[in-house]
Every structure is written in C-alpha cells, then in structure tokens.
C-alpha cells in the first residue's frame, strides 16, 4: 500500500512540474530512479523506446511502463492517474479564465524562463542515456584501456541515425518507430 501511495505522489509531482509535454517528464523519471531504485537507467532507456513505438502520448506511456515495472497492473494505474491528476485540476481551473491566463504578463514571463529550463533538463537526461548507450565505463574500469571507453559500434550507428533523421531528405520525415525498429535489427545483426 505504501508503495502505491509513493508511486502516486512521485508521479503527481512529475505531472505538476514537468512543463512542455511528454519528454519533459524524463528528468523526473531519472530522479525517481535515483531516489527509489525501482528501476535502472538502462531500463528507463528501454521504456522510452517502447513508449515512442506504441500508440498514446509518450508521457502517459512512460508513466504506465514505470508503474507496471514497479507495481504491476495496479502500479501502472496508480502512476498514470498520479501523472494526470495535476493536469486535470490545473486545466479545470484555467478553462474558466482561458483568455486572461494567456495574456497575463506574469504567466508569460514565467514561461519565458520555463522553456529554456525544459530544454536544459531534457538535454541533461539525454546525457544519461548517452552514457549507457555510447560509452562503456564499466568495461574501461575493469581493463583500464582508454579505447574501451568508447562503444564504437554504437557511435557509428548514432552518427548514421543523426544523418538519416536530420539531413537526408527522403528519410528525415519518417516516423521514429521505423528508426527504432531499424536500430533493433542493427543491434541484433552486429551483436551490440
């Protein structure tokens, strides 16, 4: 019972402070992972991939996945309800005063500060994924060989994906799920 209360509280906090959509919940999920040990950073990276590849908003999918991993089906339900409860309360309040809210100069000024904050927090969470996906600090600490720090196969794949998702005209508009599936295939074929 305590677990479910804690789960609800952690996701309530995430829903209340994550501004800017699904990816903005990421820094909070890493924070939960560090504080509680319910799931590892590597598991979280896998959850992001699954959440991107399945229907539904990413933020909701990630909350459901984390909740399921932590406390089964009831955990999934509790975490997801925790995430959406602050949204529902805040929106129901704002819906009555929609126009004046959008035009309020303090609200506008606060969001001028909040947008760069979201970018910085998401980028920092990205660094955590980069650490486990592109580097092998555990191997390096065992062997002490500097070259072992880099996961070369992964770095080549990352470079290829950046080119394909950002610069190549025919592939850059494709859905992320295709890149995720292709990466899974490359991972199996080249024994990542």
């Amino acid at each position: 019972m305590m677990l479910y209360l804690r789960l609800f509280f952690e996701f309530f906090k995430t829903g209340l402070f994550a501004v800017g959509g699904g990816m903005a919940t990421l820094p909070f999920l890493y924070d939960i992972s560090d504080k509680t040990g319910w799931f590892s950073h590597a598991q979280l990276a896998d959850m992001i991939a699954v959440s991107e590849s399945t229907p539904g908003p990413i933020g909701v999918n990630m909350a459901t996945y984390v909740g399921f991993t932590t406390g089964g089906v009831p955990g999934a339900l509790v975490a997801t309800l925790g995430l959406v409860t602050p949204s529902v309360i805040v929106i129901l309040i704002i819906a009555r005063v929609l126009q004046s809210f959008r035009q309020n100069k303090y609200v506008d000024a606060a969001f001028y500060g909040l947008r760069p904050c979201s970018v910085g927090l998401i980028a920092a969470a990205g660094i955590l994924v980069v650490r486990i996906a592109l580097f092998r600090f555990d191997l390096f600490s065992r062997t002490g060989r500097l070259l072992d720090v880099f996961n070369f196969k992964a770095i080549v794949l990352a470079a290829a994906l950046i080119v394909l998702t950002r610069w190549v005209k025919t592939t850059k508009g494709l859905h992320p799920i295709l890149f995720i599936l292709a990466s899974a295939a490359v991972g199996i074929a080249f024994r990542f």
Binding site: M23, A133, L134, F179, A185, I188
Partner: peptide, 18 residues
C-alpha cells in the same frame, strides 16, 4: 542486443527533441 541498438536510437531521438 536489440535493446542495446534501440538505446542508441533513443539518444538520437532525445537529441532531435532538444
């Protein structure tokens, strides 16, 4: 192995989102 490959893709997706 599949998920090790997928994690690389997740890095790139987060980079693109940023």
């Amino acid at each position: 192995s599949a998920f090790a490959g997928v994690r690389v893709c997740v890095c790139v997706l987060i980079f693109n989102a940023v």
